[in-house]
Amino acid sequence: MSQRTRYKSVVDVLVLLHRTDGRVLLLRRAGDVYASGLLAPPGGHLEDGETVTEGALREVDEEVGVGIAPCDLEFCHLIHHRSPEGEARLGVVFTTQRWFGEPRNREPGKCSGLVWAAPDRPPSDCVPYTAAVLDRFCSGALLSTHGWPTTLAGGSA
């Protein structure tokens, strides 16, 4: 019997700032970053020693300069994604309708602009991972997969 290797994954934390008109904030990635030119919500990698909530709050502050009370951050989706290169990631997605401050581009070297988009009709130039998250967010699903050869949890492959 062969020994199995313990599974390891990068954890992404994403925040959907959700306005009262139903639109969510997306950032146009720019520069020497993954998916430059495409749209994605504020977010990034979880850092060692922080909870997913702490990471989400840190990322949204770093990228768009808004503050969110931890009690206003709501878990809305978990996506198990596999990139075209085969890298597996877990994306923990939060939403909020309340924040302090006006969203602005705080990382001009990584972002060229902000776009408010209808999540049920995402722009065609979204990162595929983002489009999958928005689709599942709109359907109310809490769990999905994306980029795997077959779907394991009801998401798009």
Rank of each mutant, 00 (worst) to 15 (best):
A40R: 00
E87H: 10
T96P: 15
W99A: 01
T95W: 09
N105C: 11
R98F: 11
E102N: 04
S2H: 06
L78S: 02
L142H: 11
E102F: 02
G113K: 01
F75Y: 14
T5E: 01
W116Y: 00
V93P: 02
R121E: 15
G49Y: 03
G101T: 03
R136P: 02
H81T: 08
E87G: 09
A30P: 00
H18M: 06
D48C: 13
L57I: 03
E74C: 12
E85R: 05
S144W: 00
E102R: 08
L90D: 14
T96S: 13
V93I: 06
T96C: 12
H45V: 10
E50Q: 12
D135L: 06
G65A: 11
D72T: 07
T130N: 04
L14K: 07
H81S: 10
L57Y: 05
Y34H: 08
A30Y: 03
G22D: 07
R136V: 00
G86I: 12
T95C: 11
S112A: 11
G113N: 04
Y34N: 08
E62V: 11
T20C: 11
Q97R: 15
D125A: 02
V64E: 07
G155P: 06
V24G: 00
A132E: 13
C71A: 15
G154C: 09
A40S: 13
P70D: 13
L57M: 08
S36L: 01
E74F: 14
T51V: 08
V24C: 00
W99K: 06
G55L: 03
C76L: 14
A118R: 14
G155E: 05
G155K: 01
S156F: 06
